[in-house]
Design a binder for these strands. Structure first.
Lengths: 244, 244, 244, 244
DNA sequence: AATGAATGAGGGTTCATTCAT
DNA sequence: AATGAATGAACCCTCATTCAT
């Protein structure tokens, strides 16, 4: 009996995969060049089809943009929602373990480029703005708000002056990191950040800022360490910072 | 015999003012639309001149972009440098008073748009990348690094795991705020942040994160509270969220 | 089963013919208006396509010019080379019969316009100058040099003071005729030359100038008439001006 | 009493000289670049005035072109007319001495560029065509026609098949030489012609072609030389052409 | 379904011409 | 008279979109 032909991307499979292949290609090109400067030729070519084929799947360049934005971040946000909902434990642990991993994964995925794309294009495409605010910004903000709120509720964190501001202090550098990766970060200038370690350090810093100073324990035990978790089982990797 | 009257916007005066007028207009249009989607007509019209006039002062649209970037942020960064160098006192005070004011001013100025512009355009204009990294990123980062370092040297802050990362945790939300103002923030969706208060709260949060737990106090008694100035003359404005 | 009908100007056939159609149109328009004053729209329209189509085949107006020049005269020069190499007989006969026919054909062809084009454009397009000198001027000059040299070698012509000058005396009026056809000659002013007859007369005049006075005949008697063939089978057409 | 200021080109003199200075500059620029590609800025600059000044003297670029053409060759033609009318002697001598000198001077003068200019521009400027035909071509042709006719009348020349054609055989290379000087000749490619010697040789060749073979003299004297003047007092400089 | 040749509106840029100084 | 800043029409070229094959 003859073995299956390697079949590679068979015609049938290609056809079904086309829309996603086109979205992937479009995301790449739009993020690299910006929507206005991107050529539909380039998108088609990177997807391995002809320019005409692109128009069989998306009726215009702008519709393609909308599809790219619509399909690229929602699942990443949902992933965050799922993670947070799945872990019932301490907020600090959740941040340290799962939020860090979640953003590290997001940063490494092509979807990270959507942040740059949004920044660039929202003002020219108002319909997209509404979608982005409703489907990405708000749920994303909500996930982290829930995490911090849980920390407050559990007594891990003291209530900050303005919870929403604290969420932004936590969130914006992560977003900015994604943006940077596709802007200056793609220009190979100088020794760049180790992004994953920055995520961990940043989250740790926020934990430190929010953590209720263990006043009693400190006074009694004198563990004059940083305000972070006293147990330190999963604490921040101690690094070059010179211990006194 | 009377001298020539200053004659309002005389030919001569207009000519001297033109380059800056054009830069201002170009910054607005480029930030709103993105460089590629911006029409030179629009820039000229917003500057109150005809399209041809623009080319008397800048040889091409791309040169105009470079001029916009070159002339818009360097002075703002220098301002930060000056502020930091001028104030010899505590790092916390410096952050709370002057860094906040500095970024609030920057955010309100049109120059804040340059951050968006850079994000959008660096990859398409490599010469710009080098300039931006050298003249804006590096000095800007350095100013805040110096502030934090001063705090460490003076014993206000404990040495963070990675100073550079801490600088970014402080800086990136401020940059992102500028970017946001010209992206989603310009789309009037939902109740937006009070940006100035966010700046203050964010800086305060970072101060909290970095502050050395008042060890002396710890040893003596229990005032393990936030490491900020005990007198609190210039402390964070107490607000609703923080019932005393 | 019948094969596909040739289907008139099918897409495929058009595509293959396009480059030449565009070259033909471009030659016409450039020669009529001059390169700088010619509009690419006009070229496209005369070729029966839209402006954009032109750019599918030639990347710029200047490249189109170069293609026009490169493809239009080289074959005509090669034709002359072939003619001269193919005929082993007398130089006089070669001039009278074949060189005349060659230039008459060249004058009637659109390629004659390239001479005007070159004159107009060489100084603005130095790359073209080199090509023209190497591929048109030199070989063209060489063909006629060979003819005259053959006449000298065979004793038909006496060696002129400067062979190259003689070649130019022969060649330049022919070139000028081509130029004139597309300049003043196209303005229908006054009774114009019968160009074909001029070519014949001019060549005849040069033959007369170069011909070795028929020494033998001179010695014998007085038939000191024009040095042409005594039998005159292929001699100059007797015309009105020369009553027999 | 103060001495006269050096005054150089005094204001007054400059003002009166302006039109001619502008014409000279325009001729140079138009001949170099072609009318369409020439910029009025360049013309003004080369004349040492501002662009606006040019328009004080000529109402448009096209009017400037007409003035250039109108003022540049007529006097040269008139010069030829004068020379021919002033010398009553032999046509051969006239050609050899004065026609050669006349064209050599013309070739060296900037006016030689007008031939190129005409070739380039007649079709785009019909009014100019009429002027050129009437004021340059016709009189210029007439001067040489008169010379040849005189030669025929005096028995120096035998009547050619078509006198007008003979005139063109004589004239066109001279014109072409002027044209070449400002086209390929200005591109410095390879060893170019010694133009003055070519003029002499060309005229000599035409004399040879037209000269009535001195049958009697030749038969008797056996001076088997070229058919040129038997006395050779002012004959062609004998050159490298190997004497038998 | 897929192709890619063709289209033509749109935008960057130039430059002849004008006009306030 | 002279200047040169300003204008805007015109032109080269690009690229999203269409459609015959």
């Amino acid at each position: 009996m003859p073995s299956q032909p390697p079949s590679g991307p068979s015609r049938q499979r290609r056809k079904e995969a086309r829309p996603q292949e086109l979205l992937d290609a479009a995301l790449e090109v739009f993020v690299e060049r910006g929507f206005a400067a991107a050529r539909t030729d380039d998108v088609a070519q990177r997807a391995g089809v002809s320019k005409g084929t692109l128009y069989l799947y998306y009726p215009s360049k702008e519709d393609l943009l909308k599809a790219v934005i619509t399909h690229s971040l929602a699942s990443e946000i949902a992933e965050g929602r799922r993670i947070v909902d799945a872990h019932a434990g301490s907020a600090v642990l959740l941040l340290r373990e799962f939020v860090v991993a979640w953003w590290a994964r997001l940063l490494d995925s092509p979807a990270s480029g959507v942040f740059k794309l949004m920044i660039t294009e929202v003002r020219n495409h108002p319909e997209v703005a509404e979608f982005y605010a409703r489907e990405v910004m708000m749920p994303g903000e909500q996930v982290l708000t829930d995490v911090l709120q849980r920390g407050i509720d559990r007594g891990e964190f003291h209530p900050p002056a303005d919870l929403r501001h604290a969420v932004f202090s936590l969130l914006l550098p992560l977003v900015m990191l994604c943006v940077h990766k596709h802007s200056l970060g793609a220009c190979s200038l100088g020794p760049s950040l180790d992004a994953h370690r920055f995520i961990a350090d940043h989250v740790e810093l926020l934990i430190a800022a929010l953590s209720r100073p263990a006043t009693g324990a400190q006074a009694q035990g004198g563990s004059g360490a940083a305000a972070a978790s006293p147990t330190r089982t999963t604490g921040p990797r101690p690094r070059k910072a010179k211990p006194r």
